[in-house]
């Protein structure tokens, strides 16, 4: 009887086919974003500039998809920083899929890989080093790679390695497989909202442009800011092994994700507000879900643990 080799599951999958699929997806994001900007410009030139209605539709759908990414994909599914009722899990998985940042399992696998190798070879989006280990010397090259260029050529993160817990979740797997339905819904819903708001086809086009296409672009800029800027500029309150930073000025548009140094220091913290001024909308949403009983086991690092990890800037008295 010959010994049968034990199966091996790699961190990344060598597959030209999947790499092409990833690249096509990244190109589709750019094409749709450009189409949205052109559509909005065309409408403005034709005498239909965006008004408060368009801004409201953009803000609403940006927040829906953004919370899906931040509260759902990131803090719940990637880091399991809190537990939530199945309805909440379902809603967040759908909302996050509308952002068109890849399927839930892909997103989780990629982000867990980022934490495993943060700012070291293997990190899909570091301003300092390429995934294959090539150092990025130029500041501009580093910024550009970590901002959006990475999304065109990164390795295929193996969900069978990184996202095993999600494979076991039947409901989540079902939602994952319907990814393109949710992306389409994320375009259809603001189109309908615009049509109802203005009672016209022009309104529908405005809704599609602002609440759908430009909103997808804005959401990508949110995540690209996190992958680049919050590893380049800003304060490092905690001496993490990577170069993550905290950035107040990005905190509102990133829904609290720009407290990225806090996050890398305490990845299982559900709420990233450690000081009074650290505004964290996603954390507020999680706290509200907890109050209503829809979320529990909310990760909050104890103050003394936070204190011992601090390197610089000892907290002032009363700081949370």
């Amino acid at each position: 009887m010959s010994a049968i080799a034990k199966p091996r599951i790699g961190r990344t999958l060598e597959s030209p086919r999947m790499r092409r699929a990833q690249r096509r997806h990244a190109i589709a994001v750019v094409v749709l974003s450009t189409a949205g900007i052109l559509l909005a410009l065309g409408l403005a030139v034709a005498g239909y500039p965006p008004g408060w209605g368009e801004m409201a539709i953009l803000a609403v759908f940006y927040t829906i998809a953004g919370l899906g990414i931040s509260v759902g994909f990131h803090r719940l599914f990637t880091h399991q920083s809190f537990k939530a009722a199945p309805t909440v899990r379902l809603a967040l998985a759908v909302m996050g899929s509308m952002a068109m940042q890849g399927t839930l399992k892909f997103w989780v696998a990629l982000h867990r890989r980022h934490h495993e190798h943060s700012d070291e070879p293997g990190d899909p989006h570091s301003p300092y080093v390429l995934e294959d280990g090539t150092l990025l010397h130029g500041k501009l090259a580093g910024f550009w790679h970590s901002y959006m260029a990475w999304s065109f050529g990164h390795e295929v993160p193996n969900s069978a390695f990184y996202a095993r817990d999600l494979m076991r979740d039947r409901l989540i797997s079902r939602i994952n497989d319907l990814y393109f339905v949710w992306v389409a819904a994320g375009l259809a819903l603001p189109t309908v909202a615009g049509a109802i708001l203005h009672g016209s086809l022009i309104g529908a086009a405005q809704g599609l442009a602002w609440g759908g296409l430009i909103r997808i672009y804005a959401g990508h800029n949110m995540i690209w800011s996190i992958t680049s800027l919050t590893h380049i500029f800003g304060r490092r309150d905690f001496a993490t092994s990577d170069r993550s930073t905290n950035n107040l000025w990005l905190s509102v548009v990133t829904l609290g994700e720009s407290w990225h140094n806090n996050h890398h220091a305490f990845p299982t913290a559900a709420i990233l507000k450690f000081r009074w001024y650290q505004f964290d909308i996603s954390g507020l949403v999680i706290a509200a879900l907890e109050k209503t009983g829809l979320a529990w086991s909310v990760g909050r690092p104890r103050e003394n643990r936070r204190f011992t990890k601090l390197t610089s800037n000892p907290p002032t008295t009363g700081a949370r």
């Binding site: 599951i9 399927t103 069978a160 797997s173």
Partner: peptide
């Protein structure tokens, strides 16, 4: 609950 990447992992 295998996604396409996991399925391809098995094939590979």
């Amino acid at each position: 609950g295998l996604d396409s990447v996991a399925a391809l992992t098995i094939t590979t």
